[in-house]
Design a binder for these strands. Structure first.
Lengths: 212, 212
DNA sequence: TCCAAACCTGAAGAATCCTTCATCCAATAT
DNA sequence: ATATTGGATGAAGGATTCTTCAGGTTTGGA
């Protein structure tokens, strides 16, 4: 079942010449733009192709159908966000726990903010593209990275609760989502970042203290 | 602009006879079902009507277009959720702050869980129906209720930060969303509820202590 | 009983959209 | 120079969907 989905979403062909690489890049970028300007339900393959400056046929040379295009853009974004967090996790090993949390949260907020347009655009299609499934997978991946990092914390006696990490991650994405969809200003984002750090720090402290 | 949207979404006619009331109820319920079984992009007015046991024409007698139907269902759900939280806020006045938070969080989790199917279904259409705007409005409404409640807390010296409340609310909805979309079991929901209380309590304590 | 208002029906018009494929252009290797 | 592979085109087929409306059925009061 999952295999079918993946197969159906798999790109049809990889670009070889540089010309084609540019084309594929333009198509992905155009997808974001159309999503932002027209919304998910009025995103058509023709519109995306027009916006990218190519013809529809070209689009279908790389993606077997509309959903696979959306999925590819979505997956790419999640991949980049995951990597940013994983790097932060690796860098924060052996630091005090509150410092770890701070770095992870800041990395997450920053990578989401850096291309806020993509984040916002993708919120609009996630449901139609197996978003929840991909989000779940990414969540597990991030949880492992955070778990590994926390095990190296010098000031942490109890083993960290898996569930608490999931909780923290979902709270993080919830907070970022509403900030992004509200069209928050850069100043506002700094405040969100600050408070999100506080939120995660105080929760993780409480969760590791009174364990069950 | 906002007026246009509201106008375009406004129901076309209110049911008068009980027969019609039943019909409208069936249509709304069918909308949820179709959303769950077919997804947002394959929800058609005909399918909804079939599922409701009426003809398409009947549907268009009450809703001027597809979006207005989706919007109505969405709005109704938000209204109920808001009321549940507001009641909890009213009941928790003059209690200690941690008790206030506990009640609000539990009310929120419970009302979302009670009809988890609706919550999940609506996540799929929110983007196409002015979801963010409605969510924003509801958020402000809830923030006011919580703010008013917190002002009556005997153990709270500093005036509560508006921003912190927004933060708490978005974290709450994020956590609930991922639990719902993951198809969490009742046991899992109890745990989520427990931890979400802890998360909000520890955050609010921290936010009201070190203020800026 | 009888009528007007409320309600329901569902075929069909009109519009939109996804996807294909026959055909042509460009790049690269031989 | 030529063959081969990669890349691009866009009109058109096929399918789906939204929405209407002319005409039928049910309800409730006079």
């Amino acid at each position: 079942m999952a295999a079918d989905v993946v197969t159906a979403f798999e790109p049809r062909k990889m670009p070889i010449q540089t010309r084609a690489t540019v084309t594929v890049g333009a198509i992905c970028e155009a997808t974001i733009q159309v999503l932002l300007s027209h919304g998910a339900d009025r995103l058509t393959t023709t519109r995306v192709a027009d916006r990218a400056g190519v013809s529809v046929g070209t689009l279908y040379q790389y993606y077997p159908n509309k959903r696979s295009l959306l999925f590819a853009v979505f997956e790419d974004h999640m991949e980049k966000a995951s990597q940013a967090v994983e790097v932060a996790c690796a860098d924060a090993c052996h630091k005090p726990m509150s410092e770890m949390i701070r770095r992870v949260v800041e990395a997450f907020v920053d990578v989401k903010m850096q291309r806020a347009d993509i984040s916002i655009a993708l919120y609009k299609v996630a449901p139609d593209v197996g978003g929840p499934a991909l989000v779940k997978r990414t969540g597990q991946r991030l949880r492992k990275a955070i778990e590994a990092m926390l095990l190296t914390a010098p000031d942490l006696k109890l083993s960290p609760d898996r569930f608490a990490i999931d909780m923290m991650l979902s709270a993080m994405s919830g907070a970022m989502r509403s900030a992004l969809e509200a069209g928050a200003s850069p100043a506002m984002f700094r405040k969100v970042r600050e408070h999100l750090v506080l939120l995660c720090q105080s929760y993780m402290a409480a969760a590791t203290a009174s364990d069950n």
